[in-house]
Each structure stands twice: as C-alpha cells, then as structure tokens.
C-alpha cells in the first residue's frame, strides 16, 4: 500500500518516511498540503500521515479538502500533532481525520496505528467490491445473465440521446419467443427456463460487439443496434432469428417448424427526426406485432416513414 507523508520540516519528513518505509509501505513524501493534494490526485494513495501545522495548506485543511472531494476511494488520514489537548483531538476528528498521533511519535505506536488504518482500508475495499457486485447484479437478469429490463431502461435513452445528438442511426429490435406459453404448458417451467437461457445466449452471441441485448420481460428480449439503419438492423435481427431456430429446441406446438423460434420487430431512428425513445420502442413493438400476424418466425423492419407519421 502507498502511504503519503506530509510534513514541511525535512528532518521529520525524512524520519517518518524512513520509518514507514521500513514497515514495508511504499512511501511518497510531500512538503505541504498543496503538494500533498497534487500527489493525492495523481497517485493511488491509501493512507496519509500528515503534520498539522504547515504553511500554505495545513493538515486540517488538507483533511477537509480530502473529505470534501471525490477521489473515488476512501483515504485514511492520520494527523500528527504536538498539540495534546483533547480539544485538538476532537477538532482533528471532526474535520475528518481517522486518527491522530502525538508528536514526538514512537515507532511502535506508528506501526500500530498504520496497521489499524490498513485494516479499515482493507475492509472498506472488500465492502466496495461487494457493493459494485451488487450494483452490477441489479442490472443483470438472474435467469439468462444478460442485461435486464432496468438495464435497458437506463441504456436505451442514453443510446438514443447519443444518436440524436450526433445525427446517427439507432435501431432497436423487439424479439419474442413464438408460442412460448404452449411450450411451458407442454414441458413445464423448468424446461421453459432452460429454453429462455439458450435463446438469450444465442441472441447475445450473435449480436455485434457494439450491440446490446436485454431480457425485456417474460419471453421477450430486445436489442439495440447503434449506428445502424433499418436495413442493416433488419439483417442483424434476422441473423438472430436464424440463430434461435438453429438451436433446434424441440417445440411440437410451434407449427410448421417444430422447434423454438422467435419473431422480431425492428425500428430505426432516423437522424434529425423529433421522435422520443418511447416512439422508437413502440414502432419496434408494432413491427413485432406484424411479424406475429404474418405467421411468426420472421423479421419485420418497420419502414421509417411509420415513425414520422403523426400519432
């Protein structure tokens, strides 16, 4: 772990740095709060040992600056003080210091306090990692492992805004497993879940790198195709349809194919039109409805003028 020593007086700075370095830490030294702040922004510092009284920016101001800013990580701060009144300790802790050491410091105490700091940082890091994992889990569909509805609801408007701002095409596809209720009725929900997983995997493996696929709900999926017009999206979408059919998951009720298939509806955002994300999604839904009406296991790309038509 990297430790930043902040001390304006060079003898103390050198002694502190040497002592901490001998404990096995990677030490960076700064001569005042301002220099320390530059180091903190440039390097991955876990722990700061800072003197209180310094010119320019003192230790207390440095702590306040660290706490008042977003460094993207928790920095553990130990304030060194020759002031021993409990009022000063309270002030240090209130400003945001985690601990303080009275000067002159002693090696054993310094070692122990750094160890304590490190323990807290380790816990903090483990907690942060878990939080990230949980945060990621809220965006992933538990059954299929692809993005969930919530993920789509966040990503789609973002992709839409980007496309509109830069006058790019954006296509979206709605995909629905044909006669899935009949499949579940015949083989049970467990088999249904297996089929859902296989279909999701086939879709996710077939889309291109910049495309994204999500489970929209139930047996419905959706994909976004950035920088893709309705002709291009139609081709990619039909590749998805073919990939699902090729899985060959037996589905006797799905005449005439006898295997699991999907119907796909595609709609494209035209650059410089004034539709909103819901319009685009609604158009894809209409296209999907048509694909179903026209006999299933097919892809329908909605002509762009449909999007421009008044609601």
């Amino acid at each position: 772990m990297r430790v930043l020593v902040v001390e304006d007086e060079p003898v103390s700075r050198r002694m502190l740095s040497a002592a901490i370095s001998r404990m096995g830490y990677d030490v960076v030294a700064a001569a005042d709060g301002r220099e320390a702040w530059d180091v903190l922004r440039a390097e991955q510092i876990g722990l700061v040992v800072t003197d209180w009284m310094m010119p320019e920016m003192d230790g207390l101001q440095l702590v306040e600056k660290i706490r008042g800013s977003e460094l993207g990580r928790y920095v553990y701060v130990i304030l060194l003080t020759s002031r021993s009144e409990s009022r000063d300790a309270a002030e240090a802790l209130e400003a945001g210091a985690d601990d303080f050491i009275a000067k002159p410091w002693h090696r054993d105490e310094l070692t122990a306090r750094l160890t304590a700091g490190r323990r807290i940082l380790d816990l903090q890091a483990a907690l942060q990692e878990k939080n990230l994992l949980l945060e990621r889990m809220t965006r992933v569909d538990g059954l299929t492992g692809i993005g969930n509805r919530r993920n789509f609801d966040e990503e789609f408007p973002r992709a839409f805004e980007t496309a509109r701002r830069f006058h790019r095409f954006l296509s979206v596809a709605m995909l629905d497993i044909d006669r899935f209720k009949a499949y579940n009725d015949r083989f049970g929900h467990e088999a249904g879940d297996i089929a859902l997983r296989a279909v999701a995997a086939a879709i996710d493996e077939t889309v291109r790198t910049a495309d994204q696929s999500f489970r929209y709900g139930g047996e419905e999926f959706c994909c976004t195709f950035p920088e893709t017009d309705e002709a291009g999206a139609g081709i990619v979408a039909d590749r998805l349809r073919a990939a699902v059919e090729r899985l060959g998951i037996v589905h006797p009720e799905n005449c005439p194919w006898g295997v699991v298939t999907i119907s796909v509806g595609v709609a494209a955002l035209q650059p410089s039109t004034t539709v909103d994300p819901e319009d685009l999604l609604r158009a894809a839904d209409q296209a999907l409805y048509r694909a179903k009406a026209q006999g299933r296991n097919r892809t329908v790309a909605l002509a762009p003028e449909r999007l421009l038509a008044p609601r």
């Binding site: 304006d8 007086e9 003898v11 103390s12 009284m53 010119p55 020759s82 000067k103 002159p104």
Partner: peptide, 14 residues
C-alpha cells in the same frame, strides 16, 4: 512562533 515550532520539532527528533 510558527518557525520556532518547526525548528523545535526537528531538534527534538535529533
């Protein structure tokens, strides 16, 4: 006082 404080600290260390 502030300058003397720094000298004092270093002298104590040595």
């Amino acid at each position: 006082a502030s300058i003397a404080h720094s000298i004092k600290g270093a002298a104590a260390n040595l």
